[in-house]
Amino acid sequence: MNDVAVSVESLTRTFGSFIAVDHVSFQVRRGEVFGFLGPNGAGKSTTIRMLCGLLSPTSGNATVGGIDVASDPDAVKATIGYMSQRFSLYEDLTVEQNIRFYGGIYGLEGHRLAERKTWAVRMAGLAGKERELTGSLSGGWKQRLALGCAILHEPPILFLDEPTGGVDPVSRREFWDLIYQLSNAGTTVFVTTHYMDEAEHCNTIGFIYAGKLVAIGSPTELKQHMGAGATYEVACERPLDAVDLFQRLPWAAETSIFGSHCHVTLTSAAEGPDLIRKTLAEAGMALHRLESITPSLEDVFIHLISEEDKRLTRTEAS
């Protein structure tokens, strides 16, 4: 129990007849980076809002830091830090004034506030810019300042809702370094994102689709879950036509286009490469290269989504 930071059981939230979050259950271990993934509208934000005490669940249970979110949302708010993609800073205040304000509403005062302010300024790389207006900072700086403001009170659990939206790759990299530092220091980080490379950085990934949690595990586990079938990268003539062709064949579990190549996942590993070669030869398309690869997380999620879609269509049909 003690090493569980967030525990969610059968959590459900409906808006009228629409089920935004549908009986979702998972646990987040203390000190880990938990990535919460899914397409827009899948229920990511609704879940995170319930966990932060902003929205009450329709049914089910969720505890954050051992506190029940439905019965004591105020106590939850005191134990967490929250940062959204909008960075939520006052652009007409200076860096220092923003830090003072956010420190103040979490009850930091005097010596402690001064100490945390120095820490946040250094962490965000804003030394010497304390008196600049926040509105004049670039995206990466605003993002790091917003993170600093969200963790001034040193919360044991940190929620980040798409924290890297609209920020350049270098700043994103630096931001993830900060997240690792926090995680190493024992902070539990719950992060939503739709960048696949960011998902690879997480200890555990939960994948939500149409309100349901369809997969959970470490990135490696999720890739293995792709089944016994191997994934191949196929470089050939007219890749778009080739994808069309493969999609109609029963032995190709998953086909998608990646740049100028196709990725093909087979239902069983045996004879795989031969089948691909034969199909292309019969269609008269030249094969340039065929290589066995580890599926990327993107392959995994495309696979999961299509599986889920098939299942949904079946349920509707029956």
Binding site: L54, Y82, S88, Y90, Y102
Partner: peptide, 14 residues
């Protein structure tokens, strides 16, 4: 509009 209201709502303030 700024989204700071949401930030305030996640704080312990009533």
């Amino acid at each position: 509009e700024l989204g700071t209201m949401e930030q305030l709502k996640t704080s312990p303030l009533h």
